[in-house]
Design a protein around this nucleic acid. Structure first.
Lengths: 211, 211
DNA sequence: TTTCATACTAAGCAAATGTTTAGGTGTTTT
DNA sequence: AAAACACCTAAACATTTGCTTAGTATGAAA
């Protein structure tokens, strides 16, 4: 990706800031105000530049529809010393997470080194306080904290998925030839077969249980 | 918070789904289309209901400016600096806990904040890589790392105990009137009733599993 | 110098979007 | 039975908001 000018970085930063603070993207006029511009066309120029350089995407004509493209081209995980990561823990996750590090709804924080947790610093991760017994056969109990990394799920992964506005933990099954579905690891719970809208929020990488 | 109707839950779910998939909130007309409404006022009704019941907030007149209110009725989350502890991990522990900074036998290190691990800095703690299946019914599996704190065991605690030169994980049972013994949490394993020399090395406080 | 990119002001248009008013049909509660 | 509420259609209406065109200025690159 091409480099950004100082001003363009400021604008990009403001986009993210606004998302963090308000959970919504700013309109052109809000950006204009924030920077003290006297014309929305000043905004237009920067937005176009950011788009052209690949840092954001938008849907032309629609209001407040930004999208930040984070490049995940990095490949080599540099095996350093123990790298401790601070992870927000949620009781349940609603909307707004990926682009806004929304602290409301956070019920705690957890620090663990990346190696024990099996996560990468480059990926965004969060903790999830497990509720319910649907994963007991996989050794995940009510009250456990699961560390979830935002990445694409593979068959057999335990994933945090969004169903009916609640995030639940299930095993992701993706056999060739059939659509993916979610399976609970408890005989008493049903397999959520072809789910209408399956939104995987992340893949569980580690479990921390406080005995 | 008041309960939502089925339809209202669907709308709330769609708000979150759209946020997840597109990173933006849907407009009224997008909601209308998704549910097959023929009037944006159908959307208006649901949005108003969700707002009235406290599930979302918005900025009137502005486009795509939702905000989901997670109920944070619980007390204040004290955002303090977490105290991170570095813990040596052993594959097996023979003679007691090594004094000094003996790193031989150590197979790794783990860092975690004291709160998540449920340990005190004042006490000596170490990690133990679990081998065997003797504690599966307690949700501790082969390969898990257990964080053990050196302290006196209470009845029902899971302890690291020294038996035959090997440290194993068992549940400590100490009923009044009879001598304490160790019990495996797996039907296929025997209860180690009156053990000749019962040396408890520490009490398990947390489990960390790398999925 | 000329050209190009950045960085803006200014004014206005048109589409996107939220909002209102006026109904209609059920179901549940009083 | 009446009132209250959930749920929806229909048609405007008004604001928000993206977008365009026109023009000024500066500094770097060709």
């Amino acid at each position: 990706m091409k480099d950004l000018t100082v001003r363009q970085q400021e604008v990009l930063g403001y986009l993210q800031l606004h998302m963090r603070e308000h959970g919504t993207w700013p309109s052109f006029r809000e950006i204009e105000q924030h920077f003290g511009f006297r014309s929305t066309n000043a905004v237009m120029g920067h937005i176009r530049a950011l788009e052209r350089k690949g840092y954001i995407s938008r849907i032309p004509g629609q209001a407040r529809t930004y999208r930040i493209n984070l490049d995940l081209n990095d490949d080599s995980p540099p095996r350093e010393a123990l790298d401790v990561l601070e992870i927000p823990v949620y009781g349940h996750i609603a909307a707004g997470y990926p682009d806004g590090v929304e602290t409301s709804g956070e019920i705690g924080r957890l620090q663990i080194d990346v190696e024990s947790a099996g996560i990468r610093r480059s990926r965004r991760s969060f903790g999830l306080k497990v509720r319910g017994e649907s994963m007991v056969d996989a050794g995940i109990f009510d009250g456990d904290t699961v560390i979830v990394e935002q990445s694409a799920p593979k068959d057999g992964d335990i994933v945090a998925a969004l169903i009916d506005g609640e995030t639940t933990l299930k095993r992701f099954v993706n056999k060739p030839g059939e659509p993916p579905y979610l399976k609970a690891e408890n005989r008493r719970y049903p397999t959520l077969h072809p789910v209408a809208e399956l939104v995987v929020q992340g893949v569980a990488r580690a479990v921390v249980r406080h005995l």
